[in-house]
Design a protein around this nucleic acid. Structure first.
Lengths: 217, 217
DNA sequence: CCTCGGACCGACCGACCGGTCGGACGGGAA
DNA sequence: TTCCCGTCCGACCGGTCGGTCGGTCCGAGG
């Protein structure tokens, strides 16, 4: 069903691990052209293996795709977990998470496109795998949802709809880094350039705090 | 290159127009599974024609895809054009446009997924077609961009980055309606239900005006 | 020494892909 | 009636798809 153990045994010694190399190549290709747009021959060639060798590590093309997604979601979750939750204000917590999410997406240009694609290609992933991936995603989102609810209860945050706010946050971060050449054209600089990443963070922060309206002063 | 005239001649009489039926079916399938995920046999079967008949209306699969996109962008542009630009406040103009865009996306569930997909599958569309589609898109975005700039100049809107704000607006509207089952799960109701569409609009309006922070009062 | 098993490979399978071709059908003009 | 032309179709093309199969290679363990 879903991918098996990350590595059944650490390879005995500690090679560059074909499995990891396959995941790397597949991640790049799937991000660029999607599940149905990528052939296993291409993946194999990019890794430097024969196509049939892929099947020694992943039973089907789909299981490879799911393994790629699982690795991304797990890494994202780990990075968010590492952010200590000091008893700050809810808005400050939100700032921290946006900070980490944007950094992670910016450092790994394959993540945002791949995550967004999965929403569309969701029907290619069966219920079993979906449930598994949703579990990891759930952990990520629940952290943010909790902070939102606490902030609302404390009167620090407007009584917004939590799910709608989550959608807005995803849209502001994931979509932006998945917008590819279109985004590059719209901003007149590369979306993934250090300067634009910084601007994006600031834009999101200020938007969360003030919206678009100017200070009433 | 790009699709030819919307209809070279109105079909002589005015049949249900095979061409339009092909576009309808292709739009639904491409929205669900993307360019490479859909075969022309499937499109033909859904229309009720033989596969070879498709080639009498569109020279290649790609030209069909581009024609679908063109129709969507054109319709979206027409609906936005119909919104008269009474000399309102910039924020009120923005509200009007968000209103129209959300309505259009909500009434046509294929639009949002298809538009977002195109960002990813952009490399399948050649430069010629890209330029043509971007022209239509440009008209849509420039309207909003102008309102933003005017609002900023008038001191009504914070001095935000216009491109980043456009990205945020797209994320809040298009992404949300493209989020499929994931969105349905997150909200606990269908994203496209009338009630949730209304809530989405209100969420966006209030977010634009206030962000997340509670009134300082 | 021999065996065992994991990693790897080339050749091959049936199915399906986008696209072509020659012709059938049918209504309007001459 | 004849011809034309737009619409449509079935059969077919070369090529690629995901996946299978039999077998090679090689280092570890007895």
């Amino acid at each position: 069903m879903s991918a098996d153990n990350p590595t059944p045994k650490p390879v005995t010694k500690a090679g560059p691990s074909s499995r990891a190399k396959i995941l790397d190549s597949a991640e790049a290709l799937f991000a660029a052209r999607g599940f149905s747009g990528v052939g296993l021959r291409e993946v194999a060639q990019k890794v430097g293996l024969g196509k049939s060798s892929l099947f020694h590590h992943f039973p089907t093309k789909l299981s490879l795709y799911v393994a790629v997604l699982e690795r991304i979601l797990t890494r994202m979750d780990e990075r968010l977990e590492a952010v200590q939750e000091r008893p700050e204000s809810a808005l400050a917590k939100l700032r921290n998470w946006v900070d980490v999410v944007v950094d992670t997406l910016a450092e790994n240009p394959t993540y945002a496109p791949l995550l967004l694609r999965t929403l569309f290609e969701g029907d290619v992933v069966d219920r079993k795998d979906r449930a598994h991936l949703n579990g990891i995603l759930e952990r990520i989102l629940s952290r943010v949802a909790r902070a939102l609810k606490e902030g609302i209860a404390a009167g620090e945050i407007r009584p917004v709809s939590v799910p709608h706010t989550l959608q807005t946050l995803i849209g502001m971060s994931v979509y932006h880094f998945a917008s590819g050449e279109f985004g590059d054209d719209l901003l007149q600089h590369p979306v993934y350039s250090a300067a634009e990443v910084r601007r994006r963070k600031q834009h999101i922060f200020l938007f969360l705090e003030h919206g678009l309206a100017a200070e009433p002063a």
